[in-house]
Amino acid sequence: MQFFRRTAAIIGACITLSLSSGTAFAEQAVPSVISACEPGYACETPLPVKVVIVSLFEIGNDEGDVAGEFQLWKERRGLTMRIPFPQSFHDLYYNPETQVLGMVTGIGTARSTAATMALGLDQRFDLTKAYWLVAGIAGIDPEDASIGSVAWSRYVVDGDLAHEIDPREIPTDWSFGYFPRGTKGPNDMTGKPDPSGGEVFQLNPSLEAWAYNLTKDIELPDSEEIAAERAKFVDYPHAQEPPFVLEGEQLSAMTFWHGKLMTDWANSWVRYWTSGKGEFVTSAMEDTGVLTSLTYLDEIGRANRDRVLVMRAGSNFTMPPPGVDAATYLLRENEGYAGLEAAVENLYTVGSKVVDELLDHWDRYEAVTP
């Protein structure tokens, strides 16, 4: 706030009408002190950032149509200052009053890694005290929760770095043809996972627990549509519950996998990489990329790795209900996730509780991480 009070007398407040992704909306002009700074070059007056909202994709326009992960944050958080970000997938949006910055990385680990590193190295922003909130939709394991539920990750596990043999050629005693590097097969769980290899990231335990405890009692809305979908999972008690907030690990992989056998693999994979401490709950694509970049940025003081939170909301189940084959269910879900609307709404509801707490008590959280 002090930065903008100092510069307000010089640059004033300017609101312009602009077009973004084909939609007309009010957009706040970038202050001249920032617009004079070129992406990738030194900037004498970087924008202070308290919270970075990390969305992974948007469906169509940034506002005014079916909401993806970014739209509700942009509309409801007043992210009206558009900042060009040519070195990445999507322009950035900022609220100068709250100092919240919103980014869209693009789908997949490659884009999320590049986008996070590009932002972290962009000298137009002061991110040294920023909290990072990764908020995205996901597949969710019906053993653990229902669609619409929101899971805070304690660990994020990579599902791409691996050995693989076609399942039609695996030994008869192997459950999967996909197994961790450094092991002798999927049955070899005796090795000690190496956290330095990029396959597993542990989130700051105290920060994650703080966020979970702050939000665990939020009552999330239910709907007839998601109730009808979860009712099909007759053998899965947690899948039949209305949406709720829980803790559970996120598995990031570039392949959109699906099915009962793949869900069994995901549970085994997460157990191995977390040494039995983690529980697979959500599947997505980007989070290990975000954490890889933030880990490196922390090394040069451009970001604080201990100020990262990851939450994922179930937009679809990771496997079909009893009596439906995996291929049929996957292809049907690709036409529209049953829990998409609930997932993006609940992401905002739960995530906003954390953002509001940080902003309302910044005097407490600026210097000391919960």
Rank of each mutant, 00 (worst) to 15 (best):
Q2K: 15
F3L: 13
C14L: 09
L17T: 15
L17N: 14
T23M: 06
P31Y: 07
P31V: 04
A36L: 05
G40M: 07
V51W: 06
S55R: 02
S55I: 04
F57Y: 14
I59N: 13
G68N: 03
W73F: 12
K74E: 04
L79C: 10
T80D: 13
M81D: 02
I83N: 03
L92M: 14
Y93Q: 08
Y93W: 13
N95P: 12
L101T: 05
G102E: 00
A110G: 12
A118T: 14
L127C: 09
W132S: 00
A135N: 11
A135E: 08
G136C: 07
I140P: 14
I140C: 07
E143M: 06
D144I: 07
V150F: 02
D158C: 03
D160H: 10
E164F: 13
P167L: 04
P167M: 01
P171Y: 00
W174D: 03
S175C: 03
T183R: 15
P186L: 01
D188N: 08
D188I: 03
T190W: 06
K192T: 14
K192A: 00
P193K: 13
D194K: 14
S196M: 04
G197S: 11
Q202L: 04
N204I: 05
L214P: 01
L214A: 11
T215V: 02
T215C: 10
L220G: 02
D222H: 13
E224L: 12
Y236M: 09
A239C: 07
H258F: 15
D264C: 09
N267Q: 13
W269G: 01
R271Y: 06
G278L: 06
D287W: 00
V290Q: 03
T292I: 00
L294H: 02
E299F: 09
G301M: 09
V310E: 00
N316K: 12
Y329C: 13
R332E: 12
N334A: 07
Y337M: 12
A338N: 10
Y348M: 08
V355C: 08
L358E: 10
H361N: 15
W362L: 07
W362T: 05
T369W: 03
